[in-house]
């Protein structure tokens, strides 16, 4: 225990530096995953088409072991940040894609019809009706993805590094105290990201939708809804 306190005392600068690097690696992965998955999910959901594509892409990505992805890209590209980002983007895509598709696809058809009846163009229906209504669920997916990424980023140390994994996977240098100490930082970071994004999620939820079901606001809504969406989607598909 005192080892742990000593570790924090002696290495606060290093920990801060690694924590910032960790968040940076995660932020890049989330940004890339958003660029790839969000437009695809939203467009497919808007057209109510391509459920097969959206759900199965997610399933395939979900099946890819992160460590295996890092190892393969290590052989292909050598030691670099690229390896890690490939694995983390693959990890972040399924929740974002599944949730954005399910959310937009599931918008109440009556609301969409009413919007069309009011003379809204297709684009207006998407941006003024579907997206605001779908946003909480979409954001839940982003939140899940962010937690996954922060929690998995320590593996980055295997393939070129950066982040807290440099300490966690280097027991010879930092001893058990360092490994446990850095791991605790990762756990706290994951909870902090989850909590913070949970607040943002509530803030971006349209006021009319806010008295959400009690259960969903108390558990990480993303995992819950992503799994529920998964359940619904695969039950429907088979």
């Amino acid at each position: 225990m005192s080892d742990l306190v000593n570790f924090y005392g002696d290495n606060s600068g290093l920990l801060l530096e690694k924590t910032l690097a960790h968040l940076g690696i995660g932020a890049i992965a989330i940004a890339v995953a958003l660029l790839l998955a969000l437009p695809l999910g939203v467009v497919l959901g808007h057209r109510h088409a391509g459920a097969f594509l959206a759900i199965n892409t997610s399933n395939v990505f979900r099946a890819l072991p992160s460590l295996a992805l890092i190892a393969i890209s290590l052989a292909l590209f050598g030691l670099s940040l690229l390896n890690v980002e490939i694995a983390l983007v693959a990890l972040a895509i399924p929740p974002i894609l599944t949730n954005s598709y399910t959310a937009v696809d599931g918008v109440d058809p009556d609301a969409v019809e009413a919007a069309r009846g009011m003379g809204m163009t297709d684009r207006q229906v998407l941006t003024r009706v579907e997206l605001p209504l779908a946003w909480p669920l979409i954001f839940a997916g982003i939140r899940t993805a962010a937690v996954y990424v922060v929690a998995t980023a320590p593996l980055a140390a295997i393939a070129g590094g950066g982040g807290l994994g440099d300490i966690i996977l280097n027991q010879p240098t930092y001893r058990l105290a360092g490994v446990i100490g850095a791991t605790i930082v990762v756990v706290v970071l994951a909870f902090a990201v989850d909590g913070l994004l949970g607040r943002v999620q509530r803030a971006v939820t349209p006021r009319g939708l806010r008295p959400a079901r009690q259960l969903q606001t108390l558990v990480p809504a993303g995992t819950d809804t992503a799994v529920a969406a998964e359940a619904a989607a695969s039950a429907e598909k088979v």
Binding site: A151, T183, V186, V187, T223
Partner: peptide, 15 residues
């Protein structure tokens, strides 16, 4: 139950 289960899930795999 849901809270305990989601606690497990938020803990990083390597931890």
């Amino acid at each position: 139950f849901a809270n305990v289960a989601s606690l497990f899930y938020t803990i990083p795999s390597i931890a």
